[in-house]
Design a protein around this nucleic acid. Structure first.
Lengths: 172, 172
DNA sequence: CTCCTGAGTTCGTTGACTGAACCTTTGGGC
DNA sequence: GCCCAAAGGTTCAGTCAACGAACTCAGGAG
């Protein structure tokens, strides 16, 4: 269970991208960010990730300009981690990889169903078959027939309700 | 520099997909497979990857049905690793991540330019803006202005020529 | 003052990646 | 037959990242 990332010597934008978002846990942190998770506590509860690794990954994402820390309360001071525009552009890539997994690794049917709300189409290949490219804000996620609802942490429970991408999750 | 992969407990097709293709080196092995690399020796030369890791990754990809071993010569017996249909379906996801890297991490302009040969359009978002979804076989890759040609191994040199995706690379 | 929560940091242990050396099969040159 | 080289691995000791439990720290609440 170790995944370092450093592909120096590869003159390749894929390698550069993987050094940022290819590390262990990072794609799942981003997935959670897209479905609305913003707080350290919620990432921790939903991912079962070591605290030190989570702190390091969030810091790396902030340093890379993929997320920003936003203060949402002053007493006591609390920050949320929110995707930047650069980070939000990762959604098609993450979604396509996820769809590949749905097709080939999900025997009971899709675990999540993505709908483009303005037109009602199901998303394919990270975009709407009728409208072209799609903004994550316009996408609705809900559980599909292949979903397994075994987790009982507050974040997993809250995420069972249909919701829009990027809509902040509230668990408290 | 360690990236293990096992996201048990995550009911998520992205996590399942990452367990297969998210391990360290695996995305770059797949990238090489898409540009025509097929032999152990060529992967080794082009990636600077430890032999044991390369052998383990190729075996895992074969076990998962993403690649197959194909005998191309009997005396002495030699096999090539070739993408299956399941593996070829990973192209849009890999391409999108690569394009994100081109946009955000490649200061000198794109390192690689992808063209849909039947219509001549440059690919965007893993598909052709005019034709819709694209088969990798119909895509041409050539170096762009951001490319750095510092590697001197035979595979890197051969890959400097424009070529179609999936067209077998010959270096000997 | 004491307890509690959120958000980390510290640290010993485990396990994956690294790189060099070694092994096996086969063919070619002599 | 004998020796060497190449392809495709396997083995192994050392290193470094991930793991997980414990600890720290700041700021309320009572």
């Amino acid at each position: 269970m170790a995944l370092g990332t450093d592909y120096s010597g590869q003159d390749c934008s894929l390698a550069r991208a993987l050094e940022l978002v290819g590390e262990r846990w990072t794609p799942l942190i981003l997935r959670d960010a897209f479905v609305g998770v913003r707080r350290y506590r919620d990432f921790l509860a939903h991912l079962d990730i070591p605290r030190a690794v989570l702190a390091a990954r969030l810091q790396a994402l902030v340093d890379a300009g993929v997320m920003t820390k936003v203060r949402y309360q002053d007493a006591p001071p609390r920050d949320e981690y929110v995707l930047t525009a650069k980070g939000r552009e990762l959604w098609p890539a993450l979604h396509l990889l996820s769809q590949w997994g749905e097709r080939h690794l999900s025997e009971l049917g899709p675990r999540r169903v993505y709908t483009h709300l303005p037109c009602g189409s199901r998303l394919e290949a990270g975009r709407c078959p009728s409208c072209g490219t799609v903004r994550p804000e316009d996408v609705e996620v809900r559980l599909g027939p292949g979903a397994v609802t075994s987790r009982t942490d507050a974040v997993s429970v809250a995420l069972r309700e249909p919701r829009r991408l990027l809509e902040p999750l509230r668990t408290s």
